[in-house]
Design a protein around this nucleic acid. Structure first.
Length: 532
DNA sequence: CTGGGGAGGGGGCCC
DNA sequence: AGGGCCCCCTCCCCA
């Protein structure tokens, strides 16, 4: 019995020793991880402080220059027409270039276009170039107020609104939200959360891995340079009901906008490097840390958007909108007159800008899009991969896109034969699937991931590249049955056939003259009936 | 007026 | 069901 007791005691003491050792080891592991995190946080804080200081300096300098420029412009070119001309000129590369032919000073108020604020350089105005709005069938209450807040904020003062929203999202004061350092609470929070759980070590490892992946991802840039349309399901937005709230966009938008400013003079010129090479990892990192909750799966959404577009600051943002509000021609929460507050005010301001275009014959008749197309050397050099140049592109391209959509009778979300749950953040046009909207949004972003191996030309779409390659291959699959002409495009054959058939379906409503093609009718009407 | 290159929206098919 | 891909179509611009 006594032996049994002694044996039991010994077992107990051994168990205790082992338990203590295990606990000590676990504690050590936790401490080590914690120390690593603290170290990383400290380093990040230092970097953030440095960046913040630089940004502040930059901001002050820019504001000074901006004020001077605005005064000068107001004095010289007070009219909207001239402002637009100037803007257009910049878009064509006539503007103020600061970093060679691929960088230029962001035009004033590019997404907050106002008549009374023509050349306001708003470096803090966010500019996410890849935004997707998903019309969600449920969960409207969670999102509605946010959208509403954006709306009201955007109408009053986009900049202010952005500050408020980002502050609300991160719990930090508006100014601090602008600061990359605001990313830290998010990180700290994650660690605290992890250490308080039973499986602290396991979760810590998981998060460490996630953070490592994040870090690696952010600082390499080669991984996400791949073809967006070959990257599989990652290119799709998250399932509806996600927690991807607009406030995150604000955070990221804000940070990235600063990145825009900073990276304006940086970035490679290698056209083959697609759109990722220009990114400033520091700024990217800040944006991600601020807006991405890795522990809740936002990483997947983020990475998916990144992979889908291959560009961090062009991430696909998803905003869940109550489907019930989107029936009809335009979603009530995203109509043309309101709702796109602050950073999202791009849409509204684009409309304003478009309105300006439409009221200005000079601008309206000129295709601003062409200023950015391949024919234009400036566009060629900077468009596909220059996320900063998109500052201008988006505004102009978007206006052009809407004009095109309107001429084609394509309302933002009207005429839906299918449910168009995916809205373009820029023009609010609805699409039936995420691929379509991602494809479409390249119109705004200028991304051209598909490059021709023969001539280095780049295209935003694979099918357009395929079409283009017929130029090199000489392939003309469409042959005329009436003559020996062959065409690379089916539409061209179709047009050509009218030569043989004499079909003239387009008749002038003024003089009755008939034309085989609409373009000829238009030319005719411009020449002969322009005053009507 | 016509041919040609390209951009972009939309639909359908296949997996 | 959704993504990837392809094709059709319209439009624009240039030569």
């Amino acid at each position: 019995m006594a032996n049994c007791m002694v044996f039991h005691t010994q077992i107990a003491s051994i168990m205790e020793v082992l338990a203590n050792a295990a606990v000590a080891e676990i504690c050590k592991l936790v401490d080590d991880d914690y120390a690593v995190f603290r170290l990383e946080i400290t380093q990040s804080q230092k970097e953030n402080r440095t960046l913040r200081r630089k940004l502040l300096e930059l901001k002050v300098a820019r504001e000074r220059a901006e004020r001077t420029a605005r005064e000068r412009v107001l004095a010289i070119r007070p009219s909207r027409v001239k402002i637009l001309d100037r803007y257009r000129g910049m878009a064509r590369g006539e503007g103020h270039l600061t970093g060679g032919n691929r960088s230029f000073v962001k035009p004033a108020g590019h997404n907050t276009w106002r008549d009374d604020q023509p050349i306001t350089v708003d470096e803090r105005s966010g500019f996410s170039t890849q935004n997707i709005i998903v019309i969600e069938s449920a969960d409207s209450e969670a999102v509605g107020p946010v959208v509403k807040q954006e709306r009201s904020g955007g109408e009053e003062d986009p900049q202010h609104s952005r500050d408020i929203q980002t502050g609300a999202a991160s719990g930090a004061p508006p100014v601090a939200t602008e600061d990359p350092a605001t990313a830290q609470p998010r990180t700290r929070h994650s660690i605290t959360e992890v250490s308080g759980t039973q499986n602290a070590v396991l979760k810590s490892e998981t998060d460490t891995e996630t953070l490592t992946v994040t870090h690696r991802f952010l600082h390499t840039g080669s991984d996400h340079r791949s073809d967006p349309e070959r990257l599989g399901p990652l290119g799709c937005p998250p399932a509806p009901g996600s927690e991807y709230l607009p406030v995150f966009h604000q955070s990221q938008r804000t940070v990235n906008s600063r990145g825009d400013v900073d990276a304006l003079d940086t970035g490679g010129d290698d056209p083959s490097c697609s759109y990722t090479t220009e990114m400033d990892p520091g700024n990217i990192s800040l944006g991600l840390e601020t807006q991405t909750d890795l522990s809740r799966g936002d990483w997947n959404r983020y990475s998916s958007s990144v992979y889908s577009e291959g560009c961090l600051d062009k991430k696909g943002e998803v905003i869940v909108v109550d489907e019930g509000k989107v029936e009809g021609d335009a979603p009530p929460t995203w109509n043309a007159d309101s709702h796109l507050g602050d950073g999202h005010s791009q849409g509204r301001d684009f409309l304003n800008y478009r309105g300006s275009l439409e009221t200005n014959a000079n601008v309206a008749t000129h295709s601003s899009l062409d200023a950015f197309r391949g024919r234009d050397p400036v566009f060629t050099s900077m468009a596909p991969s220059d996320s900063h140049g998109q500052i201008l592109f988006d505004q102009v391209l978007n206006s052009n896109d809407r004009a095109r959509a309107q001429t084609q009778g394509e309302g933002a979300t009207s005429g839906n034969s299918k449910e168009k749950r995916f809205l373009c953040m820029f023009c609010k046009k609805g699409f039936s699937c995420s691929q379509k909207v991602e494809r479409h949004q390249r119109v705004h972003t200028g991304e051209k991931p598909f490059s021709c191996t023969q001539c280095e030309k780049r295209f935003s779409r694979q099918d357009n590249l395929k079409m283009h390659q017929r130029v090199h291959t000489g392939e003309k699959p469409f042959s005329c049955t009436q003559c020996h002409m062959r065409f690379a495009q089916a539409g061209h054959l179709k047009m050509h056939l009218k030569v043989h058939t004499g079909e003239r379906p387009f008749n002038c409503t003024h003089c009755g003259k008939r034309f085989s093609e609409r373009r000829n009718l238009r030319i005719h009407q411009q020449k002969n009936h322009a005053t009507l």
